[in-house]
Computed example of a mutant assay.
Amino acid sequence: MTDRSITGEARPHGKQGFDLAYWWERLGILVVLIALVALMAVIAPNFASVDNLLNIARSISINAILAAGMTFVILTAGIDLSVGSTVAVSGVVAVLVAMAGIPAPLAIIAGVLAGAVAGLINGLLTSYLALAAFIVTLGTMTCLRGLAYTMTDGQPIVSNTLNFRDIGNGYMLGIPVPVVVMAVVYLVAWFVLERTRYGRHVYAVGGNAEAARLAGINVKLITTSVYVVAGACAGLAGVIFSARVVSAQPTAGTGYELDAIAAVVLGGTSLIGGRGRILGTLIGSVILGVLSTGLILMNVPFFTQLLIKGVVIILAIGIDSLKTRAPRLRRRTATPVQQPVGGG
């Protein structure tokens, strides 16, 4: 079974000439990004400056890392609403560990592990107890947010000497470190999903879990693992966020789960699973970041920005729904050609 057969993305046979739908599905989101950047460069003051582009790249890094993990979950037809709260808990853990005198690398690892544990809980409840992912992660979203408030007594914990602050504020060869971390995350995610057996199993589970089980894939293990991946990515995002603000914020990550889901769906990953590409998620994250920054530069009020972002999310889900329903409608309306049997 090949990647294309699993994801259902092979080009239909028998079509001659240019297939607009085929190419739009693969390159349409990139065309949208280019058009949006061109528009913002014209109407938003100083949008195309190097400093602003670097700031955009830095600002999208956290959501992009969250969305990378969310892609794994959505590819298996799951959902994780708890990643925003996981950002808060992981950031608090990393800061508290660092303030205890633990070296920076171990503090970062502690934050990532905290996120992975949260993801493991989601995965076990979802796969082995067969609970609905939406309900499970909605519950853990609330629990983790409460845990973040409990660990900080409801107040930010500021550390001006935070030993891992460079992961949020430093530069590497003139590029912000969060951007470098984001690039590494996407390179690893691309390799795992596109070039490994595990990646094929993720697509297979999302495409048809029962068929995957009959093919010998451990569906429960794969389902659990994708939530661990999402949790680890949220943990890393939480560490970067805390490093940027040099503090542990119990309110960190509020609403981030919606931005992550929007980026994944904008990037072409189907909410019903089994179809999508990690590079599409990156482009979706960039689109949201460019849109947000452009609106800020144009002095659009914050509440109007929320309205526009909500419309974008609804449009993304609507487009995904239409893409999913269109092949079904074609199959229902198609009239098979009857072949004559025998002569005369």
Rank of each mutant, 00 (worst) to 15 (best):
M1Q: 15
T2V: 04
T2P: 09
D3S: 14
D3V: 14
R4P: 13
S5H: 08
T7N: 10
G8L: 04
G8N: 12
R11L: 01
K15W: 08
Q16I: 13
D19I: 01
Y22A: 13
W24D: 12
V31P: 00
V32W: 01
L36W: 09
V37P: 05
L39Y: 11
M40N: 07
M40G: 01
M40K: 02
A44M: 10
D51C: 05
L53I: 09
A57V: 12
I60M: 09
G69E: 03
M70V: 05
T71P: 07
F72R: 08
V73L: 00
I74P: 13
L75C: 09
L75M: 12
G78E: 14
L81S: 12
S85A: 11
A88T: 10
V92D: 13
V93A: 06
V95T: 09
M99W: 06
A100F: 04
I102H: 04
A104D: 13
P105D: 10
P105L: 00
L106T: 09
A107C: 04
I109F: 07
A110H: 02
G111C: 01
V112S: 11
V112K: 03
L113C: 02
G115L: 01
V117H: 06
V117N: 10
L120Q: 14
N122H: 06
N122C: 02
Y128G: 13
A130K: 07
A132E: 15
F134A: 05
I135H: 10
V136C: 08
V136W: 05
M141H: 13
L144G: 06
T150L: 01
M151L: 14
G154R: 02
G154S: 08
I157R: 05
S159P: 11
N160P: 05
T161D: 11
I167R: 07
V177G: 13
P178F: 02
M182H: 00
L187Q: 04
V188C: 04
V192L: 05
V205S: 14
G206V: 09
G207W: 01
N208Y: 01
A211D: 10
L214H: 14
A215Y: 09
G216C: 03
I217L: 06
T223W: 00
V228S: 13
V229Y: 00
V229C: 06
A234V: 07
A237D: 15
G238R: 00
S242F: 00
R244A: 06
A248I: 07
P250T: 12
A252T: 09
T254R: 00
T254Y: 01
D259M: 04
A260K: 02
A260W: 05
A262G: 05
L266C: 07
G268C: 03
L271D: 07
I272Q: 14
G273V: 05
G274K: 01
G284T: 10
I287V: 15
I287K: 06
G289K: 02
V290G: 03
M298Y: 08
F303Y: 14
T304E: 12
L306W: 04
G318C: 10
G318A: 07
I319N: 08
K323L: 09
R328C: 08
R330Y: 06
R332K: 07
T333V: 10
A334V: 11
Q339P: 11
Q339V: 15
